[in-house]
């Protein structure tokens, strides 16, 4: 019976955590995409790989070390980028490769790849514990509250930094806040889609929603809807056909994006033609 999956408590946890992560990735990702920072999530995810390896070697819960390493390295990289005037894409490349390099060296030192490493690389949403779910829901709640409280500052500094500065918005602090929130979001999402596919959840629902939404709030809500649909459908379909949830979730998101492109090329979505 297909419907029996609704009765499993691991499935409840997977769906609840998945929806929370979908909402979180959509809203944080929208700020990154609009700042032309689409791959930043990917870079943080790769740096978190170093943190995961460190945690596994040291016998600490790997996600804790991943939070520490990825947030610190993202903030340092942002500082270096501003201070030495390095372009955004180059700084992403540096962050991305150094995380993987550190991770690979640590894994080599501690005896090679294990099953644990693979679950972080490709996600393991069906394995989230009650504690994980509580953590995911709490972090989602905190970040959403911060975004609601600082909505104008976040939106304005994303729209035009110079004008935001003239209006007295502390643009530099807001930039660091966005990097900090992106770090938390990425590591929180690792359990859903894994290190390798995180940027898909940051970017694809948002570039799709931008083609539909008029204002910022509307676009954010549309993006969340696409993202939630992809996550829930991806989890169910992957369970039924016994395939990887991470890949299935991302393919659903890509499917919505492809349909939108099709609708647009038929002239049915005239906004940006």
């Amino acid at each position: 019976m297909t419907f029996e999956i609704f009765t499993f408590s691991f499935m409840h946890r997977a769906i609840i955590s998945g929806i929370a992560i979908a909402i979180l990735c959509s809203i944080v990702g929208l700020f990154l995409v609009l700042r032309r920072y689409s791959l930043f999530g990917d870079a943080i995810a790769h740096s978190s790989f170093g943190g995961i390896a460190l945690g596994l070697m040291a016998g600490i819960y790997p996600l804790w070390t991943a939070y520490g390493v990825s947030i610190v390295s993202a903030l340092i990289m942002t500082r270096i980028k501003d201070k030495f005037n390095i372009s955004g894409d180059a700084s992403i490349a540096v962050l991305l490769s150094s995380g993987i390099a550190v991770g690979l060296v640590i894994i080599g030192l501690s005896g090679g790849f294990t099953l644990d490493i693979f679950s972080f690389l490709f996600g393991s949403i069906l394995l989230v514990s009650v504690n994980d779910t509580v953590l995911i829901l709490s972090l989602t709640g905190i970040i959403l509250i911060v975004i609601l409280l600082l909505y104008r500052q976040l939106l304005y500094s994303t729209f035009n930094e110079e004008q935001a500065k003239v209006n007295g918005i502390p643009v530099e602090k807001i930039n660091y806040l966005i990097v900090f929130m992106a770090g938390i979001t990425v590591v929180t999402s690792i359990q859903l889609v894994g290190v390798l596919l995180i940027s898909a959840l940051f970017v694809i629902p948002n570039v799709t929603a931008i083609m539909y939404g008029k204002g910022f709030k509307q676009t954010a809500i549309i993006s969340m809807c696409f993202s939630i649909f992809s996550v829930v459908a991806g989890i169910f379909v992957s369970y039924i056909f016994d395939i990887t949830p991470a890949g299935t979730i991302v393919l659903f998101a890509i499917g919505i994006f492809a349909c939108t492109m099709g609708i647009k090329s038929l002239g049915l979505l005239s906004r940006h033609n």
């Binding site: 609009l34 104008r152 035009n160 935001a164 209006n167 007295g168 929603a209 931008i210 939404g213 910022f216």
Partner: peptide
């Protein structure tokens, strides 16, 4: 700065930025 309104030569923003006229004017509101 709270008492100043500034209009730059050519405001630079992402062409596809999902902000309505209402959103943009609201950004100026303290």
């Amino acid at each position: 700065l709270k008492e100043i309104g500034y209009v730059p030569q050519k405001p630079i923003f992402e062409k596809n930025f999902p902000a309505t006229v209402n959103d943009v004017v609201k950004m100026g509101l303290q």
